[in-house]
Simulated assay, not measured.
Amino acid sequence: MQTNLPPANLTPGFVWLFLSPIGRLGRKPYWLGLLLLWIVVAIAANMWARSLPADADFATLQLSDFVSSNPLFPFLFLLVTVVELALVIKRLQDIGLPGLLALLAFVPVINVIGIFAVGFIPSSEGPNRYGPEPNSYFRRG
């Protein structure tokens, strides 16, 4: 066993899971985190759809219609984007890839394919430069 590795946090919490881009994230918590995000988005979309008049034509709706229905929605989607990026960055690092690849989440079509692809690729074996094992991170020594 190597003794030159920094100490590790093997039991990170929810703040780390949803907000920190540091460390490694296994497939199961990745999918559960994304599922929670998608549920939040679905609830917000349902609230918005129910606030529209019954005769509203979805083809003619614009972004301003969405924002004016509830001024907190843009902040919600900004938070969802930050959380999604944190999940994807940690998942990429678990695979052994640099977290900067998560910026591809802003490229249409690649974002959907990439977010699903990293959820199916197995974790790298043993410690890597991002953490000692999935769902962990190195502490600063």
Rank of each mutant, 00 (worst) to 15 (best):
1 M>V: 12
2 Q>F: 13
3 T>D: 14
5 L>R: 15
7 P>I: 07
8 A>V: 12
10 L>F: 08
10 L>Q: 11
11 T>N: 15
13 G>C: 01
13 G>N: 06
13 G>L: 08
15 V>P: 00
16 W>H: 12
16 W>G: 00
16 W>T: 03
18 F>G: 05
20 S>D: 00
20 S>L: 05
21 P>W: 08
22 I>G: 01
22 I>N: 12
23 G>K: 09
23 G>R: 09
23 G>E: 00
24 R>L: 02
24 R>V: 02
26 G>N: 07
26 G>S: 13
29 P>N: 07
31 W>K: 04
32 L>Q: 12
32 L>D: 02
33 G>S: 14
33 G>C: 03
33 G>W: 07
34 L>K: 00
34 L>H: 08
36 L>I: 14
37 L>I: 01
40 V>Y: 01
40 V>Q: 02
42 A>F: 11
44 A>K: 07
45 A>M: 12
46 N>A: 13
47 M>T: 09
53 P>G: 15
55 D>A: 14
55 D>P: 05
59 A>E: 15
59 A>Q: 14
62 Q>M: 10
64 S>G: 12
66 F>M: 12
69 S>Q: 07
69 S>H: 10
71 P>F: 13
71 P>D: 14
74 P>D: 09
75 F>M: 13
75 F>S: 11
76 L>Y: 05
77 F>T: 10
77 F>G: 06
77 F>L: 09
78 L>P: 06
80 V>P: 04
81 T>L: 11
82 V>Q: 02
84 E>D: 09
84 E>P: 03
85 L>P: 00
85 L>Q: 10
86 A>M: 04
87 L>A: 00
87 L>P: 03
89 I>H: 04
90 K>R: 10
91 R>A: 00
91 R>K: 01
93 Q>K: 03
94 D>P: 00
94 D>K: 00
95 I>R: 01
96 G>S: 09
97 L>F: 05
98 P>A: 08
99 G>W: 03
99 G>R: 05
100 L>I: 15
100 L>M: 11
102 A>S: 12
102 A>W: 01
102 A>Q: 03
102 A>I: 01
104 L>I: 10
107 V>R: 10
108 P>H: 12
109 V>I: 15
111 N>Q: 08
111 N>S: 14
112 V>M: 10
113 I>T: 08
115 I>N: 11
116 F>D: 02
116 F>P: 00
117 A>V: 06
117 A>W: 06
120 F>L: 14
121 I>A: 02
121 I>V: 12
121 I>G: 04
122 P>I: 03
122 P>C: 00
122 P>V: 01
123 S>Q: 05
129 R>W: 03
129 R>P: 02
130 Y>N: 06
131 G>T: 03
131 G>V: 08
132 P>H: 13
133 E>L: 10
135 N>M: 05
135 N>G: 03
135 N>T: 04
136 S>W: 06
137 Y>P: 03
141 G>S: 15
